[in-house]
Amino acid sequence: MTSADDVGKTILRNKLLGRWAAEKLGMTGRDAEVYSDALARGTVDPERSDVFGKIRKDFDAAGVVESDERILHVMTEFMLKAGNLMPTAQGDSLDAAAVTLARKLMLP
């Protein structure tokens, strides 16, 4: 990731992806939110940034049948959606949005 734009989009994509994966795993409510927040937090943590690997491992452990191609397709769809949801203005507003989301997700 090379900019705050990329970081913000990836955090949002991982949040959306986490919600999708949580649903597939049968999680609801608080459990689903905790799972999706953990994936989003992983965006800025090099040790946990492999969201595809995490989801693949979790799906396999839970017996969820989804192909690698399907997971990658959903990741791409959510990246496009995240790009559309991010503010379009350059500079402060986009940087602030990315930083605010990252800070919120980093809270214990």
Rank of each mutant, 00 (worst) to 15 (best):
G53L: 04
E47G: 09
R48G: 00
D37F: 12
R56K: 13
E69V: 11
F59Q: 02
R56C: 00
S67C: 08
L39Q: 05
T43K: 08
E69T: 12
A62H: 12
A40V: 10
E47P: 00
T43A: 15
R48L: 13
L39W: 04
F59M: 03
F52I: 04
E47F: 12
S67P: 02
V51Q: 13
G63M: 01
I55K: 03
D37T: 14
V51Y: 02
R56T: 00
P46A: 14
R48Y: 12
G42F: 11
E66C: 13
G63N: 02
R48D: 08
R48K: 15
D68H: 05
D60M: 04
E66Q: 15
G63I: 02
I55L: 03
V44T: 15
A38I: 01
V65N: 08
G53I: 02
E47W: 12
F52T: 01
R56Y: 03
K54C: 00
V51L: 09
D68L: 01
L39V: 06
R70V: 14
V65T: 13
E69C: 01
F59S: 04
V64D: 08
G63P: 03
S67L: 05
G63T: 02
I55A: 05
V44C: 14
S67Y: 07
F59A: 05
K54Q: 11
A38Y: 11
D45K: 14
A61T: 03
A40K: 08
V51T: 12
D60R: 12
D60K: 12
K54P: 00
K57W: 01
T43F: 11
V51R: 05
V44W: 06
T43H: 07
G42Q: 08
F52S: 01
A40F: 08
S49I: 05
E69G: 11
D45W: 04
G63W: 02
D60S: 11
V64C: 09
E66S: 13
V65A: 15
E69W: 07
G53D: 00
R48V: 03
D50K: 09
F59P: 00
V65M: 09
E66R: 15
I55P: 01
D37A: 15
R41V: 06
S49N: 15
D50E: 10
F52K: 06
A62D: 04
D68N: 12
D50A: 09
A38T: 11
E69N: 07
P46D: 12
D68F: 02
L39R: 06
D37P: 02
A40T: 04
A40I: 05
K54L: 05
K57M: 05
A38S: 15
K57L: 04
